[in-house]
């Protein structure tokens, strides 16, 4: 009985999460007339025209590639510099450590309107406007606070005994960090990695202002299907659906450590 109610709730929530997406997929197989039919149609003659157009469109492949480079770069670079900072903030108290942690958090609080123009000027002066590396640096900056604070939370939940034993055995701080703490925090790294990837993959405003002509990520590219006069529903929905495939692939690869009992269980 309990299992029945739990499953009912879980599948109901799945339906809620999936329905708008179902509508998007539905639209991607419709002609432009069917897409805006009144009343909305559930059963119709599906067409592949939208997908064929999108697949033939080299620009869409370009958006995809730019997004992939930027999101993967942001995830790797962000974890590489964020995880060490998180570990130190979780394991040591030093003069000003609370203020330092809060300062990192506060970098996420500034509304984008106040950041965009100074960012643009800075990037223009540095000559990294419209480059992959420029966008990666911006996205790491936007998401570093989340990486550091979430990973700090994960480290605090990991018992310290194993690390302390490692010091007693004569390992250095660095050895203990990458040989013990990092493997132990894999569920956290996995969750934070997925979040960083998705945030960077879907980021619009900075990608628009700091990129746009040479480096054009998918959110900016897809916005091109939204015209002043009309929205190109077929191409918008078909390319958004296709772009889900690589994201799901990435989420699938990265979610393994989220499966319960995989890490801490092995130490007991």
């Amino acid at each position: 009985m309990k299992v029945f109610f739990r499953r009912a709730a879980l599948y109901l929530f799945a339906l809620w999460s999936f329905f708008p997406l179902y509508w998007l997929l539905n639209t991607s197989f419709k002609t432009s007339k069917d897409a805006l039919a009144r009343p909305p149609t559930f059963i119709f003659k599906p067409i592949m025209k939208n997908y064929i157009e999108v697949i033939k469109n080299n620009e869409v492949w370009g958006y995809f590639l730019d997004s992939l480079i930027v999101a993967l770069g942001t995830t790797c670079f962000g974890l590489l510099i964020g995880v060490p900072a998180a570990y130190v903030l979780a394991r040591f108290k030093f003069k000003g450590s609370a203020d330092f942690g809060f300062w990192i958090l506060s970098t996420r609080m500034t509304p984008p309107i106040a950041m965009l123009i100074p960012f643009f000027i800075m990037y223009l002066k540095l000559g990294i406007l419209d480059t992959h590396i420029g966008l990666i640096i911006a996205h790491v900056g936007l998401n570093l606070s989340i990486i550091v604070w979430l990973m700090r939370g994960f480290y605090e939940e990991i018992p310290m005994e194993i690390e302390e034993a490692s010091y007693v055995d004569g390992s250095s701080f660095f050895q203990t960090f990458y040989k013990i703490a990092v493997p132990l925090s894999m569920p956290g790294i996995s969750a934070v990695g997925i979040i960083t990837f998705l945030f960077s993959w879907n980021e619009f405003l900075f990608a628009l202002v700091l990129g746009d002509s040479v480096v054009r990520t998918s959110p900016v590219g897809l916005y091109g299907f939204v015209g002043y006069q009309k929205i190109y529903w077929g191409q918008l929905s078909a390319s958004a659906s296709l772009l889900l495939i690589p994201v799901l692939f990435f989420v699938f690869l990265f979610q393994k450590p989220l499966i319960k009992g995989l890490t801490l269980g092995s130490f007991k």
Partner: peptide, 20 residues
């Protein structure tokens, strides 16, 4: 189920918002 739950975070927001 986990994959279905993560879909709203994975889809390009521009496309999702216009679908809404």
């Amino acid at each position: 189920l986990r994959t279905l739950y993560l879909l709203p975070l994975a889809i390009t927001p521009i496309a999702a918002t216009f679908t809404f």
